[in-house]
């Protein structure tokens, strides 16, 4: 395929420049939120909770917290990145450029995923100031971090095209993703749930992400690692197919 690499680089640089302009919003806000979680759940309440699977509670919630921030910020960054040009009308330039959906995705989603990985690393460093962190499988940790960032940035890109206004951009992360992350084992092991709710929880796709990510830290998982990885890849592929369809049909992009 004859790719327009200059276009990919232009979109990527443009989006990263937007992150630099909104550094406080992009990085500082999630870091402060995470620090608050550690103060409340790690130090204040966590000290009274017993270890889970041999891991102190403060350390146990680190992967879940990173995943929680990663999901919401990936969606938020990618959806805003593509929704803003639609809102201001500058999308005409992207639509009239000699590029296919591959370049558009590589640019917008690549930048959003990069921001998420930076954010994940920042939160990890912040967490290390509060609790002891041991990463059992660094390669797999990085792989889950990148795959999750890319998958949910793709999802955010879809959301940014689907949404008719900024309100809808906020609704999905706030009303769907955050509850799924909270109920997907961010702050507990699903083995602590009654059997019925364990089964119900398995329908929550975020469970697999958190479980796999936590395994890469502490070698303990609620579901098998292979299943976690497969589910992540399936979600990524579904998002890619939807985006391919959007560009093929021009859904909400081309009249």
């Amino acid at each position: 395929m004859n790719l327009n690499f200059y276009a990919i680089a232009s979109i990527y640089r443009f989006e990263m420049a937007r992150m630099r302009r909104t550094l406080f919003q992009s990085i500082a806000t999630p870091v402060i939120s995470t620090s608050l979680y550690f103060i409340v759940f790690g130090a204040a309440i966590g000290s009274r909770i017993a270890e889970i699977d041999g891991v102190g509670y403060g350390s146990f919630i680190v992967p879940g917290l990173i995943m929680l921030m990663l999901l919401t910020e990936s969606i938020s960054n990618a959806s805003f990145g593509i929704h803003m040009p639609r809102f201001t009308g500058t999308i005409f330039e992207v639509l009239s450029a000699p590029i296919s959906f591959v370049e558009v995705i590589a640019g917008y989603v690549g930048a959003a995923a990069t921001k998420s990985v930076i954010l994940g690393a920042t939160i990890l460093m912040t967490a290390s100031l509060f609790v002891d962190i041991h990463i059992a499988h660094p390669f797999w940790m990085l792989l889950f971090l990148v795959l999750t960032s890319v998958s949910f940035s793709l999802f955010g890109f879809i959301l940014g095209i689907w949404a008719d206004g900024f309100e809808k951009l906020q609704i999905v992360p706030a009303l769907i993703i955050t509850p799924l992350a909270f109920l997907g084992g961010s702050f507990y092991s699903i083995s602590m749930l009654p059997p019925f709710w364990q089964t119900v929880t398995l329908f929550n796709p975020v469970v697999y992400l958190i479980s796999g990510f936590r395994w890469s830290f502490y070698d303990n998982a609620d579901v098998s690692v292979a299943l976690s990885l497969s589910m992540t890849c399936v979600f990524l592929c579904i998002c890619l197919v939807i985006i391919w369809w959007i560009f093929r049909t021009g859904y909400k992009l081309r009249t």
Binding site: Y6, A7, A17, T88, G89, T90, F92, P98
Partner: peptide, 30 residues
Amino acid sequence: IGLVPQELSTDMFESVWSTVSFSRGLFGRP
């Protein structure tokens, strides 16, 4: 092809230099 649209659709927070440079790259030019 270059297109100047009817609406004043611009990236309000960008500088003139960066937005023009962005357009060049977007259309595949170094």
